[in-house]
């Protein structure tokens, strides 16, 4: 048997172990090569499929790179104004308590312009899942400084490195929201390895299960990369993230009640 024949024998339906979920649409993603958004989208889609809640899930997309998230997940979506996704999700979850409502927000959207909305949604303990993608930079507008940009990190609006004396320290949002009684599950994950993706999926599944059990707000931060903004290759970005982001934004679950 030649090598080619052997591969062809393996590639058959009964041997299938990993394929794209149908909840993920076939549209080609507009994200840059290596962007963490793609992995997170996929994981959410897989959880929706596994929990069989495609007809009951409403996503709220932000302003930022993931503004077009609705092009990729085959569910109903609301596209929010910059930072306001938790407000939309609040009303949606209260008016339709049997549905699964999640916001998908970047660090500029959630931690800067939408700081009031997220803090108060967390404090009220809205029965929603918040997916917070922290890549320490504004992606869509061209790599400007975010509230989560690390000290001395070079961005388009901190060209000499972030000066914390002037701009404040990088905000640890998960730590902040974990202090609020309204949050039930607060975790910080990543998606750079197969193991990390598996853990992320468990966390997102737990978030949606909390919604089902009407437990309140689940906050899932994902430390991710922005290779275009960081001006590194996707693989270098992962290394930079591990070296610089993980020490400041340690992975793990901060709260699980």
């Amino acid at each position: 048997m030649t090598a080619t024949t052997e591969i062809n024998n393996i590639i058959s339906e009964e041997n299938l172990v990993y394929k794209k979920t149908d909840v993920l649409l076939d549209n080609e993603m507009h994200y840059c090569p290596g962007c963490t958004h793609g992995v997170i989208h996929k994981v959410i889609a897989e959880v929706i499929e596994e929990m069989d809640i495609q007809d009951k899930t409403i996503g709220v997309s932000p302003v930022g790179c993931s503004v077009l998230a609705y092009n990729y997940l085959d569910i109903d979506w609301q596209q929010a104004a910059h930072g306001r996704a938790p407000a939309l999700a609040t009303a949606t979850a209260r008016l339709m308590p049997e549905k699964y409502v999640f916001t998908y927000q970047g660090d500029g959207d959630l931690a800067s312009i939408g700081c009031a909305e997220i803090i108060h949604a967390c404090n009220r303990g809205e029965n929603i899942v918040v997916v917070f993608v922290n890549n320490a930079i504004y992606g869509m507008t061209g790599g400007q400084m975010a509230p989560t940009t690390l000290e001395n990190q070079v961005t388009a609006t901190s060209p000499y490195g972030r000066d914390c004396a002037s701009t404040g320290a990088p905000m640890k949002i998960s730590e902040m929201v974990s202090l609020l009684p309204g949050t039930r599950f607060v975790t910080r994950q990543s998606a750079e390895t197969a193991g990390a993706v598996r853990k992320l999926k468990k966390a997102i599944r737990k978030g949606f299960e909390n919604t089902r059990e009407k437990k309140g707000l689940s906050f899932i931060e994902i430390v991710g990369t922005c290779s275009s903004g960081w001006k590194l290759s996707p693989t270098q970005s992962n290394e930079w993230m591990k070296e610089n982001m993980f020490p400041y934004y340690p992975l793990g679950t901060l709260k699980d009640e």
Binding site: A3, I10, I11, N15, V17, G34, H37, G38
Partner: peptide, 28 residues
């Protein structure tokens, strides 16, 4: 692409981390 197909163990790691979900994995 699979440059070294004989070594593949069908672990799915590549599929999991692929941001564009373009990899389908088989294992026998």
């Amino acid at each position: 692409h699979m440059a070294n197909p004989d070594a593949c163990i069908g672990c799915s790691s590549c599929g999991l981390v692929c941001p564009d979900t373009v990899i389908t994995v088989y294992r026998a």
